[in-house]
Amino acid sequence: MSASFALALQAARDAAAGQHYPQSTLYMVATPIGNLADITLRALHVLQLVDAVACEDTRHTQALLRAYGIDKPAASLMALHQHNESQAAQQVVQRLRQGQRVAYASDAGTPGVSDPGARLAAAVRAEGLRCVPLPGASSVTAALSVAGAVAPQAQESGFVFAGFLPARGAERVAALQKLALDGRCVLLLEAPHRIRELAQALGTLGTRPVTLARELTKQFEEISTHAAQDLLPWLDGAPQRARGEFIVLLHPAQPREDESAGQDVLRLLLQELPTKAAVRLAAQITGSSRNALYAAALQIKGDAGD
């Protein structure tokens, strides 16, 4: 532990120790997404106070706690991740019923936002027990705060958090195009080994602005906004641009008054599906006429064969 975090622990005690921390309570603790200094004073105090820490990866969380000078015995750390969340949640409930205070921390960021934690909170609340949020770092809100994604005047505001898209081709294209038709900001998560594939799919959105935010809060943080059609060339411009975890933010779309949206979706689906299936799915996604889409599909197929 560095001297700076020793001061932080003292500041946490001074600032937070006088508050009420009831027993038989689950504390959902947001942890840094890269920069250790992004921990809150209340989180530091609660992590010292609780009887047990449930966490996505016990080794990762133990290392995090030790970085702050918090020493917890190994027996007080409980593994709770996406593969065992329902079962492990019952162990947490049992501890809470014994009067213990339990914290939950995912590997990075706010629990329950793409990370485990939602099922745990649901199980605790279903038993009539208390669940207290300790807000803090989140890659979603970090990216939103700097993207400058402003909706056109008189258009619906807000944003949609979609997380990771389906991995399979046709399902991925359909999900992406359905989200692209939403007039609000759309936030996606993507891993480095699939970012080029996503950028290629987004290219069909033409000039719609897209912000890529990678390695947020870390030394090599990079935030860059481009027209959707320029994303793939930009990624290919330097090897490091495809490294790290990504937040991908589709800026609000300009209102469209023509029928081209349905044909844009259709054109993508035809790359993965037979004509009839592509037409049916494009009609479901966009609300466009199936007959019109079928005629457009024949035209697209005819143009491709020329």
Rank of each mutant, 00 (worst) to 15 (best):
D115S: 07
V140F: 15
A121H: 01
A162P: 11
L134P: 00
A170F: 08
E171K: 13
D182N: 11
G183T: 04
F159R: 01
L198A: 03
L165G: 05
S139M: 10
P111H: 03
A151Q: 09
Q155L: 12
E171V: 03
C131L: 14
A143G: 06
H226Y: 11
G203L: 08
R130S: 11
E215W: 12
L212C: 10
V186L: 10
A213V: 08
Q155H: 12
S114A: 15
G163H: 11
R168S: 09
P111R: 02
R168G: 03
L165S: 06
P133M: 12
E127I: 13
P166S: 09
S114F: 15
A199H: 00
I195L: 02
G169M: 08
V146P: 04
A123E: 10
C185D: 01
S139G: 14
H226S: 02
I223S: 06
A191R: 08
E197M: 05
R196D: 13
V150K: 09
L202D: 01
A199I: 00
L129H: 11
L176D: 00
V150W: 14
D115N: 06
D115T: 06
A201I: 03
H226F: 12
A147I: 07
G206R: 05
P192E: 07
G169C: 06
R125D: 04
A147E: 05
V124C: 04
P152S: 03
G163I: 14
L120W: 12
S139L: 10
E190W: 01
V210E: 07
L134A: 03
F159K: 01
S157H: 12
H193F: 13
L144P: 10
E215T: 07
R168A: 10
R119T: 05
T141M: 14
A213D: 06
L120E: 07
G148R: 08
V160Q: 03
A126E: 14
C185S: 15
P233M: 08
R196Y: 14
G128N: 08
S114Y: 15
G206V: 09
A199G: 01
L231S: 04
T225Y: 05
L144Y: 13
C131Y: 05
E197C: 03
R214Q: 06
A213P: 04
Q153W: 09
I195K: 00
Q153Y: 06
G128Y: 13
S145M: 13
W234P: 01
L181S: 02
L165K: 07
A126H: 11
I195H: 00
F220T: 01
G112I: 09
A118P: 04
P116R: 11
P111G: 01
K178S: 14
H226L: 15
Q229D: 09
E221G: 02
S138V: 08
P152Q: 04
R184H: 03
A170S: 12
P192G: 05
L216I: 15
A167F: 12
Q219V: 14
A149C: 08
L188R: 11
L181N: 01
F164Y: 15
T211L: 15
K178D: 09
R208H: 10
L216Y: 08
G136P: 01
L120Q: 07
